[in-house]
Design a protein around this nucleic acid. Structure first.
Ligand code: MN
Ligand code: MN
Ligand code: MN
Ligand code: MN
Lengths: 219, 219
DNA sequence: ATTAATTTTTAGATTCGCCTAAATTTAAAT
DNA sequence: ATTTAAATTTAGGCGAATCTAAAAATTAAT
């Protein structure tokens, strides 16, 4: 079965939202997709007819098994294209989302699998998010927010919770990026800012706002 | 200005057709685009309103200067993606057209210019067709059909006039590909078949049908 | 010069994805 | 338990891109 760009966008949005809420609501979807609630209702009816999701009026929506498969395929395409743009075309990771949002709808499985091979089967995209494999299997790496990391526990930055140029600018200024080894030296109670030590270097102070969009895995 | 995939497909088709006929007709377009004449008329009105072409009912259509610019941009995208698919993802040149037909509508000039650089600014696509540069300039190489090449004139295969797997299969079997050096040893009047000599090797016989879809440039 | 055939356009509908405004249902507040 | 507010759906409509059937214009043939 083949789906339109609009359908794929809805499926992907539902997939993302249903991790943070048992039922995905019409308004949440309208918000995520920058559209209006009546448009969402229309599409939900259509996707229900195609058995991609379970939808009961007024109750909310959840993806079916088939729906999840479709979602993972779209996520795979999105993240592989993002990886391509960053690792081969020298885009910054703050510039790739919009373009990948279009590229993810190209309908050739062969293309995606060959792209995957060309990139060396990357397991994570430029934002640290896992890339589903050809069969839709996803590796979830255990990670916590940097704000939750115990003092003196060695860890490395594994994902970013925002893709804004502003975050990238700040990370560069602080000498941080995906994969950076660090540990937390001190937390100041006044503003909840953190002193962190990068590798073997001198310590750097970062705000609570910054720390809370950084995810780390212990090592 | 930004154009829909449908609009870009029409513009590109008109661009291709207007080389072989002073006026592009409604039926020719319907044929090329696998659609029906009334759909073409509708679109022509729309594109005329956008000043991309000159269209007078019943008379036919020609691209405006602006229309040509758009056409060249789409052709550039198409051929760069084809080059990418063949040179980086190991597609055969008989497999890339359909996918490129989709990829050419991704709307990021930055993406295309970076792709161009990544590929090393190729001047010709996998079928030997010239790739317009970032400003829409195109290099036309003087070439003739192999059927027109004088006897014993040294030349190399510069383009193919078909993208079918059947042609690729035959070329492989005859040991021919883009860039192959050859000259014509003899033309048999009975079936117009040609004996050609590849580089310094033994001669090979190819049919008139094959020779007429091969373009060569003398060297 | 008529007539016939072909090409092209117009008329009217359809599907998709979206919208606004109004009605309905559900949840919250008094 | 009512009333009020919020969320959601229904009703009706619109633009893009397509279609079929019918009308009109052009071209070719007698
Ligand atoms: Mn998208
Ligand atoms: Mn990402
Ligand atoms: Mn196309
Ligand atoms: Mn080509």
């Amino acid at each position: 079965m083949q789906y339109s760009a609009a359908e794929e966008n809805y499926i992907k949005a539902i997939y993302r939202l249903q991790d943070h809420a048992a039922m995905v609501t019409t308004n949440a979807l309208a918000d995520a997709l920058q559209t209006k609630p009546p448009s969402v209702t229309d599409m939900l009816k259509k996707l229900k007819a195609k058995k991609l999701l379970n939808y009961e009026p007024y109750k909310g929506v959840k993806l079916s098994a088939e729906g999840k498969k479709v979602a993972l395929a779209v996520v795979r395409k999105h993240r592989l294209w993002e990886s391509f743009l960053v690792s081969k075309l020298q885009f910054g990771w703050d510039e790739v989302h919009e373009v990948a949002e279009e590229l993810e709808h190209i309908t050739s499985k062969k293309l995606i699998d060959k792209l995957d091979a060309f990139l060396g089967f990357p397991r994570f995209d430029p934002h640290g998010d896992p890339i589903p494999d050809s069969q839709g299997r996803i590796t979830i790496q255990p990670q916590v927010r940097l704000t939750e990391l115990p003092l003196h526990q060695s860890a490395e930055i594994s994902a970013v919770g925002s893709q804004s140029p502003a975050l990238l600018e700040l990370l560069k200024a602080k000498g941080l990026q995906l994969g950076t080894r660090l540990d937390v030296r001190k937390i100041f109670s006044f503003d909840r800012s953190l002193d962190i030590r990068i590798k073997q270097q001198a310590s750097v102070n970062i705000s609570f706002e910054l720390a809370s969009v950084l995810f780390v895995k212990t090592c």
